[in-house]
Amino acid sequence: MAIQRMDNVAIVVEDLDAAIAFFAELGMELEGRMEIEGAFADLAVGLDGIKSEIAMMRIPDAPGRLELTKYNAPQAIAASPPVPNTIGLHRVMFAVDDIDDTIARLRPHGAELLGPEVAQYENSYRLCYLRGPAGIIVALAEEIG
């Protein structure tokens, strides 16, 4: 028995439209949007009375999807935004063509660099972490070498 693929990473957000706009600006495409509720959802997730809306975002012409989820019931629980050394999901990283342009396009959507500037690793990559929707950490990498 073998794993077939990693299907997606899910992110719970408060403002689904804003999260869709953020990841669309990054270059992802909205694959679909739907409401989720019922016994199957309650059983799969382990919560009672689920009413949520999801948006599946995909990377054009490449594997990789994000499921953005807004819980209407039960109400989503807000926690402090994670920092890079928080135990659990660390970050989601995207390879981009132009890191400076990407940051500039994401800033109007609330993106903030976690460090003072973009870092450079030798002559290979420029990298940064930034805060994205729902406080998640989004990493960007631009290959330069």
Rank of each mutant, 00 (worst) to 15 (best):
M1D: 14
A2G: 05
A2W: 12
I3L: 13
Q4N: 13
R5M: 07
N8S: 02
V9M: 10
A10C: 08
E14N: 11
E14P: 01
L16T: 02
D17V: 08
D17L: 00
A19G: 07
F23Q: 06
F23C: 06
F23A: 05
A24E: 15
A24Q: 14
E29F: 07
L30D: 11
E31T: 14
G32A: 11
R33G: 02
M34L: 12
E35T: 09
I36R: 03
G38M: 05
G38S: 09
A39K: 10
D42E: 12
L43P: 00
A44M: 10
G46K: 08
G49S: 03
G49R: 05
G49H: 05
I50Q: 12
I50M: 12
K51T: 04
K51Q: 14
S52T: 15
E53R: 07
E53C: 06
I54Q: 03
A55W: 05
M56D: 06
M56L: 15
P60M: 06
A62R: 14
P63R: 08
R65L: 10
R65D: 02
L66W: 10
L66I: 15
L68W: 06
T69F: 04
T69K: 08
K70H: 13
K70V: 00
K70Q: 10
K70G: 00
A73P: 00
P74F: 05
Q75D: 14
Q75E: 15
A76F: 03
A76N: 10
A76R: 08
I77W: 03
I77A: 06
A78K: 14
A79W: 01
P81V: 15
P81F: 13
P82S: 12
P82D: 13
P84R: 09
P84H: 12
T86D: 15
I87T: 01
I87S: 07
G88C: 12
H90G: 13
V92A: 09
F94K: 13
A95F: 13
V96S: 12
V96E: 11
D98A: 11
D98N: 15
T102Q: 10
I103A: 03
A104I: 05
A104T: 07
L106I: 02
R107N: 02
P108H: 07
H109A: 03
G110H: 03
A111W: 04
A111M: 06
L113R: 06
L113Y: 11
P116R: 11
E117F: 00
A119Y: 10
A119R: 14
Q120G: 06
Y121T: 11
E122M: 15
N123I: 00
N123C: 01
R126C: 01
L127M: 12
L127F: 15
C128K: 02
Y129K: 01
R131Q: 05
R131A: 01
R131N: 00
P133Y: 02
G135P: 09
G135S: 09
G135Q: 04
I137F: 02
A139L: 00
L140H: 04
L140G: 05
A141L: 08
E142I: 11
G145W: 11
